[in-house]
Design a protein around this nucleic acid. Structure first.
Lengths: 342, 342
DNA sequence: TAATTTAGTGTAAGCGCTTACATTTTTTTA
DNA sequence: TAAAAAAATGTAAGCGCTTACACTAAATTA
C-alpha cells in the first residue's frame, strides 16, 4: 500500500529557462514583475511557458518568497447556508484580488479547529478567518505572536489584536424578544443550537433573557432546549418545549433552520402559527421566506460579512493596516410567524 | 502598499533539532516515521516540538517529499446546498484519512475553472474532484498526462482515465417526466438552470424531451426557460412560462430551488398547486420538504456522492487503484406538488 | 569472545523557486 | 564620441524540509 502514483514530473522554471534560452531569474521575473523584462524576451518566455504548460510550484515559491497570497478560513461546517454564503463572498473578494482561499471545517469541535488552524498556518496562510470567539485564549496569543492577521466573523470581539466583522448577537435577540414581549408574550421558550462551544448560540439565549429581565420576568424561568442544527431534531425538541405547562406562547429559535422545524412540528400538532403559538427565527436565510407561515426573524448580512472580512484581511496583509472592529447592523424582518399572544 | 507584514519567523526543524540536541533528520523521522526512532529521543524531540510550538512548513515538505496529501475540489459555488453538502462529506472522509481538502469555486465559468484547476495543481494537489463533464477536453488530457487522479462528480462519464461518482441525469428526469405523462400531463414546460456550460442542467432537459418523444409528443414543443439559480429569478421565469397558451399543466424544474420559486409564484398568482398546475423539482434538498405543497422531486444522494468521491480518489492515490465509474441510484420522491392533470 | 546483525543517528544533497548582487547591454547626457 | 546612467540579464545563495547513505553502538549469533 501507499504506492506513489506515477505522477509525471511537471516542467520546472529551469525547463522554461532552457527552452527560452534565458536564466531562471529572468523567467521568474517574467512571471512576478513583468515590467522589469524586455518585451522581446518576455514573449519568448511566455511562449515557452505555454508550450510546456508550465505552472509554478507553489511550495517552492512559498519557500523562497515567504508569502503565499493565501488566506485561510476555518468554519464549523460548510453544510450550513450562512457559512457557505459568507465564504463564497469571502472567496470572491480574494479571487478578485489575486489571492486564494483555503477552507477547513471544524465540525464545531475546538480541538479540530485548533488543528485546522495549525494546518492552515503551516500551509503558509497569510491571514486567517475564524468564526466566533469561543476558543482557547492560547490560540489567539499564538496567532498574535506569529503576527498573523486574524479576523473573527459572525461575532464581535474587543481584543485589540484581532479584527472582527460581526454583529451583536445579544442585542439582536434582545430586540426581537422585546418586540415579542410587547405583543403580550410572557411564556417564552427558547430552542437553541448547542451552546457549549458556540458563543453565537449562547449570546442569543442571553439576549432573550436580558429582555425578560428588563420587563420584570425572571429570566431563569425561560425554558431552553438545545438541539442539533437540523429540521428533524428541531421538530423533536419543539415537542418537549410545547408539552411544558404553562405552554409557551412563543418559541424563539436560535436560527432559521430550527425555526423551520418548529413550524412544521407545530403544524403537525394541529397548532396554528401564530394563532396558537408564535415562532421566531434568526439569520434570514431562504428557508425563512419559503416556509409558511414565513418566519419573523433577524436579518443578518452574511454575504456582506464575508466580503468585508476579506477586505479587512487584505488591508492588513497588503497595507499593514491595523486590526479593525466592524459591527454590522441587523434588523428584524417581520413576517408571519410572530403574532400577538393568544 | 504591499508592505510585508511583520510576521515573526516560525521555528524550523533545525530549531527543534538544536533544542532536542539531535540532527534534523532525527526530528524529521520523529514526525514522519516515529517507529524508527528510540523512545527516549522521541520524547525529547516531541517535548521540543511542543515547547517551540513547531509546525512543519508545508511548502518545504511538499518540495522535498513530492507529495502533499492534499486533495483539490473545484465546484461551481459553495452557495448551493448540494455542493456544500457533498463537499462537507468529501472533506470528512479526507480528514479521517489524514488528508486535507483544498476548495476553489468557478462560478460556473469554464475559464475560471481552468485557472482554479491549475492553481490546485501547482499547490501540489495529489488528486482532483471536478463537477460534471462540461469542459475543454484539453483539460482532461492535460490532467491525464500529469497522471493526476481525477473524479467527476454529479455526473457520469465513460472516459476511461477519469473516475466518476454520479448519477444519470437524463434517466432520472425521464422517469419523472414519464410519471407525469401517466398522470395525464401533456402540456409540460421546463424551468431550467443555464445549460450552456452545465451538462447536468442540459441533461435534465434532454431527459424530459426523451420521455415526451416516447409518448409521441413532439419534444421540441416543450417550452424551456433558463434562469439563474435563485428563488427570485425562478418566480419571474415561472411567470413567462405560465403566460403561454395553452397554459402548461406541469412545470418541471431543473432543481428544487427553482421549483420553490415556481411554487411561490403560482401561489401568488392564485393558482393551486397541484390543482391548477403541477410543479416538480430535482435534488431533494431540505427546501423540498419545507415548502408547501412539498415538492415531488428526484432524490439525489449528495452526501454519499461526496463520501464515495473521496474514497475513490484515496484509493487511486494510495493504492494505485484504477479509475472507477460509479453510478448511484436516484429515486423519485412523491410528495404533494405533482398531481393529475386538471 | 569475535563476527554479524540490527537499531538509532548523523551527514549532506537536493526539491523548485526568489532575489540580492554582479555583470552586461542599451540609452542618455555632456 | 566618451562617460555616466539606466535597463536587462545572469549568478548563485538560500528558503525548510526529506531521505539515501554512512556511521556508531547495541544486540544477537556462532
Amino acid at each position: 500500500m501507499d504506492v506513489t502514483p506515477p505522477k509525471n514530473d511537471l516542467p520546472t522554471l529551469e525547463d522554461v529557462a532552457k527552452a527560452a534560452r534565458v536564466s531562471t531569474a529572468t523567467v521568474s521575473r517574467c512571471l512576478n514583475s513583468p515590467d522589469r523584462v524586455s518585451e522581446s524576451t518576455k514573449q519568448r518566455v511566455m511562449e515557452a511557458v505555454r508550450e510546456l504548460k508550465y505552472s509554478p510550484n507553489f511550495g517552492a515559491r512559498a519557500l523562497a518568497a515567504k508569502r503565499t497570497n493565501t488566506y485561510g478560513a476555518v468554519i464549523p461546517t460548510m453544510d450550513n447556508a450562512i457559512f457557505a454564503r459568507g465564504l463564497q463572498a469571502f472567496q470572491q473578494v480574494l479571487v478578485d484580488n489575486g489571492a486564494t482561499m483555503l477552507v477547513a471545517s471544524s465540525a464545531y469541535d475546538p480541538e479540530i479547529e485548533e488543528n485546522q488552524i495549525k494546518t492552515l498556518i503551516s500551509r503558509g496562510a497569510d491571514a486567517l478567518l475564524l468564526i466566533g470567539t469561543d476558543r482557547d485564549p492560547g490560540i489567539h496569543e499564538f496567532l498574535e505572536e506569529r503576527g498573523l492577521p486574524v479576523v473573527i466573523a459572525w461575532a464581535c470581539t474587543t481584543e485589540a489584536t484581532l479584527s472582527c466583522v460581526g454583529f451583536d448577537n445579544v442585542e439582536a435577540t434582545r430586540q426581537l424578544a422585546l418586540k415579542a414581549l410587547d405583543l403580550g408574550h410572557h411564556d417564552i421558550a427558547f430552542l437553541s443550537a448547542f451552546t457549549r462551544t458556540n458563543d453565537r448560540a449562547r449570546n442569543r439565549v442571553i439576549g432573550a433573557r436580558k429582555a425578560l429581565q428588563e420587563r420584570g420576568i425572571d429570566p431563569s424561568s425561560m425554558p431552553v432546549v438545545e438541539t442539533k442544527y437540523s429540521i428533524r431534531s428541531a421538530r423533536e425538541a419543539f415537542g418537549t418545549l410545547v408539552r411544558r405547562s404553562p405552554r409557551p406562547t412563543l418559541v424563539m429559535c436560535g436560527n432559521d433552520v430550527l425555526a423551520a422545524g418548529a413550524v412544521q412540528a407545530a403544524r403537525d400538532m394541529g397548532l396554528d402559527v401564530p394563532g396558537d403559538i408564535s415562532i421566531t427565527g434568526f439569520d434570514d436565510i431562504e428557508l425563512a421566506t419559503v416556509i409558511s407561515p414565513a418566519l419573523t426573524t433577524v436579518h443578518v448580512p452574511h454575504r456582506k460579512m464575508g466580503r468585508l472580512a476579506a477586505e479587512v484581511l487584505l488591508d492588513q496583509v497588503r497595507h499593514n493596516a491595523s486590526p479593525r472592529h466592524v459591527t454590522l447592523d441587523t434588523h428584524i424582518v417581520e413576517r408571519a410567524s410572530l403574532g400577538p399572544a393568544p
